[in-house]
Design a protein around this nucleic acid. Structure first.
Lengths: 250, 250
DNA sequence: CATTATGTGTGATTGTCATCACGTATACTG
DNA sequence: CAGTATACGTGATGACAATCACACATAATG
């Protein structure tokens, strides 16, 4: 069942496309629901899709040879993923998993490949998106080279809360979309992170164990820097302290 | 001083472009020599270039907050780099450094930006290159998530020698270009890696120290798996053993 | 609302490897 | 070719965090 142009236009990255550019795409798009932990993108499958997240939360993951899960990025509502396989003769490098019940608009590659280089704004959006992903992966790469695991976690929290934009307003986030990232936060105000990733989801992003993430959170809570409200909300109570910890000033 | 179309066409990724596509580019390209350790790309500079490596060796690097160098990729002759900044309003995310005396063809962004979306094969080449870089970064990301440092080094050596193509012929390499990567190596034959990266250059790719790389090489040499000929050549004497070590079978 | 599943928290142990300092070998330069 | 710079090699130390097993808390489900 196709989706309307209006549904597609809700996605930031498509909202500049003309109706005539969107119509052939909307005709082939489908809206699907995914359960928690269901696979949204499987690189082994023959037919690939561009995936626009309407509601819920997704995570791009890879697996090492020994079966360990590696976190690559988070997808928040309003964003999309799965575009790497459109360029060249290789599948997408990553699996995408639903972290929560999600609604995703799927757009088959076959509907895009024939037109993407002819619709100027479409190829521009897609290639700019790839460039952004390279930048995100590079930023995450630098985080991973920190030898101190707590420092990685502080940096990840700074990214989730937007604190990393303070020194680098051009930075892009691993979690972006309709929620957040649009403005630099105020260091004097508490920051609420809705639906934060679990300790395990953060741990696989940072090459550490969920027990270590828990212990770092424990010490941040003991210093009243963060406060956890169950699993639905995480509050940065002292953004300025977290900001300095993330800079390595701890 | 501009360069000829023939010089540009020597680069694999440009050789499918027509003369009319290459002419405006060649008119603005310059050939420059860089000394060892000289900066080829500086993201802080206003004017950016696409860089084609004619001869020598380059490495893409980033720096962490505490000034540690992070290795992102190697560039071998015949390849190019520096294309991320073409897409969107942000500089390139990486510095590029000459690892050896190098000759580089520099193509200013200003010469490309006005035509890149209009020359179909050019935007295709550039966007496919971005996609390949995402795949490379993702592969390297998986290597970095291995908790065993020796296993990371085995995998890096497998990539440098082409052994990683055995199970994944579609894989792209962090070091590619005119030399190597074009065919799957024979496990029964010694593999020669010309101008291998130094222990320090490998260490920053793998988030480890050069002492640790040295110790792992020591044990590989003790088992006659690799043999070092000064700094100009590294021979994989028992590719099958390295292949299995890289799989974690050690 | 009870049961089940998932996520967080805790303690103990051990091994790995970063770090530091320094020596030796190789490559480069004038 | 001598001197200098760079790369490799070595030894010792201590800290950090992965790992394992298990308990407790929270969320989801029927």
């Amino acid at each position: 069942m196709a989706v309307s142009i209006e549904v597609l236009r809700r996605f930031d990255l498509l909202h500049e496309l003309t109706d005539s550019a969107l119509e052939p795409l909307a005709a082939h798009a489908v809206l699907r629901k995914f359960s928690r932990r269901e696979i949204v993108i499987d690189p082994g499958q023959a037919e690939s899709n561009l995936c626009f997240l309407f509601e819920g939360s997704l995570q791009g993951v890879d697996f090492t040879l020994d079966g360990r899960e590696v976190g690559l990025y988070f997808v928040r509502p309003g964003d999309f993923c799965g575009e790497v396989g459109l360029f060249g003769h290789h599948p997408n490098p990553e699996f995408v998993v639903a972290l929560a019940k999600s609604q995703v608009v799927l757009l088959p590659f076959s509907a895009i490949e024939s037109v993407m280089y002819d619709i100027h704004p479409l190829i521009k959006v897609l290639s700019q998106r790839l460039a952004r992903w390279v930048i995100e992966l590079t930023q995450q790469r630098s985080v991973l080279s920190l030898t101190s695991i707590p420092l990685r976690i502080y940096r990840q929290l700074a990214q989730l809360s937007g604190l990393d934009l303070i020194d680098n307003p051009q930075a892009v986030a691993s979690s972006q979309g309709a929620g957040g990232r649009s403005k630099v936060p105020d260091l004097t105000q508490e920051i609420n992170i809705a639906n934060p990733p679990t300790h395990q989801e953060m741990a696989i992003m940072l090459n550490t164990s969920r027990e270590t993430v828990t212990r770092v959170f424990q010490s941040l809570q003991a210093e009243d820097i963060v406060q956890r409200n169950g699993t639905s909300s995480l509050i940065i109570k002292q953004p300025e302290k977290l900001y300095h910890l993330a800079l390595g000033d701890g």
